[in-house]
Simulated assay, not measured.
Amino acid sequence: MKSLVNFRDIGNIPTVDGRTVKSGFFLRSGEVVNVENTVIDRLLNEYRLRTIVDLRGKKETTERPDDKIVGVDYVNIDILKDVKGQGASFEELLQGSHSADKGMFDLYEELILTKGAKKGYQQFLEMIVSNPENPILFHCFAGKDRTGLAAALILGSLGVSKDLIFKDYLLTNELRKPANQQIIDQLKTQGLTDDQLQEVLVMMNVDQRYLDHSFKIIDQEFGGFEKYVVDELNMSAGFFDEMKNAYTA
C-alpha cells in the first residue's frame, strides 16, 4: 500500500482579476493504484471526492487499474489514444531515434494538436463545467504531462496567470522525487547505463519549456488560449464566465 504520488489541490491560487480558485474541487495526482486506506478516507471525508478522471490509455488501465472507491464515480478519458507507443516501457522509449528532451517536446505538441487529445480535453472540461462544485481527482500515470496540461486548462480558464500555472506545474519535480528515485533504482538493477538513466530522468520530470511549448502552439496556431478552448475544444462562449462563477471566489 502507498500514498498518492504527486498529489495536490490546485485551489487557493489567485487569478489575474483579483479572485481566488476555490480549494477542494480540483485534485491532481499520479495513478490511484494500491493507495492506503488512510488516503482514501481523507479523499472522501476531507475533500468529499465524487469523481476520479483517469487520463491514461487502455494498456495502462488494464495492467494497473485504479482502486475502486465506494461512492466515487470513475471516468476514463484516453488523452493519447491517437499517439502510438504511449504505453511503451522506458527501455523501448530509449531505443527511439530522438532524445528524451525532443520526445517531451513532441508529446506536448500532441497534447494540443491530436484529435484524440482535443476530444479528451473537451470531454474533461464539459464534465467540470456541467457539474459545478463537484470535487474531482484527475490523474494519469505520473500525474505530470496529460495531467499537467489538464491542470493548465482548468487554471487558464479560471483566469490564472501563466507564471502561476507554471509554478503549479513545476511542483511535480519536488513531489515525485521519492517515486522517481525508486524507478531509477529499479532500472539500475536491469542494467541501464548512466546515460540511459539520465534520459529516463528527463522523461520523469517536467520542464517549464515543455508546457510553454504547448502555450506557444496555442498562440501561433489558434490565436490564443480562449480561442483554442472555444474553437478547438468546442466550449461555449459563456464557458469562461460559468467556470469563474462556479470555481472562483
Rank of each mutant, 00 (worst) to 15 (best):
S29R: 02
E126S: 08
S99P: 06
K244H: 08
Y247K: 11
A88V: 04
N205I: 05
Q198G: 06
L155R: 12
V206F: 10
F240I: 00
D54E: 12
L153T: 04
Y247L: 11
T51W: 00
F138G: 01
E46D: 06
Q123S: 15
Q86P: 03
I112D: 03
G143V: 06
L49Y: 07
D241R: 12
I218V: 04
T248P: 05
L192S: 03
K216N: 08
D82F: 11
K115M: 08
V53E: 08
V53L: 14
L137W: 12
E92P: 07
G143D: 02
F239A: 13
L197W: 02
V21N: 08
D41M: 10
D106Q: 14
D207S: 09
K2I: 01
C140Y: 02
N180E: 14
E242G: 01
A100G: 01
H139S: 13
T20G: 01
V83T: 12
L155N: 05
F90I: 09
R209V: 05
P135G: 02
M1N: 11
L171D: 02
D78W: 00
N37C: 03
A152F: 03
A142W: 03
T62R: 08
L80I: 01
V53I: 15
R48V: 07
N37T: 08
V202H: 02
D17A: 01
K216G: 00
N234S: 14
R64P: 02
I40K: 10
G116R: 03
I52S: 05
D101N: 09
M104E: 04
L137V: 06
S23L: 03
K2T: 08
Y121S: 03
I217E: 00
L192R: 07
F222A: 00
R64A: 03
D101Y: 12
E92K: 05
F124G: 06
Y169P: 05
K68S: 07
Q122T: 15
E92M: 08
N37I: 10
A249S: 10
I184G: 06
S97V: 15
D106N: 10
Q190H: 05
R19M: 09
Y247I: 11
F222L: 00
M235N: 14
G191T: 10
V35G: 07
K216F: 14
V229K: 04
M104V: 01
R64V: 12
D207N: 14
R50D: 15
G103S: 09
K244D: 11
T114Q: 00
L93R: 15
F225I: 09
L4E: 13
G116P: 03
D17N: 12
D231P: 04
E31T: 06
S3D: 14
T172K: 00
P65K: 10
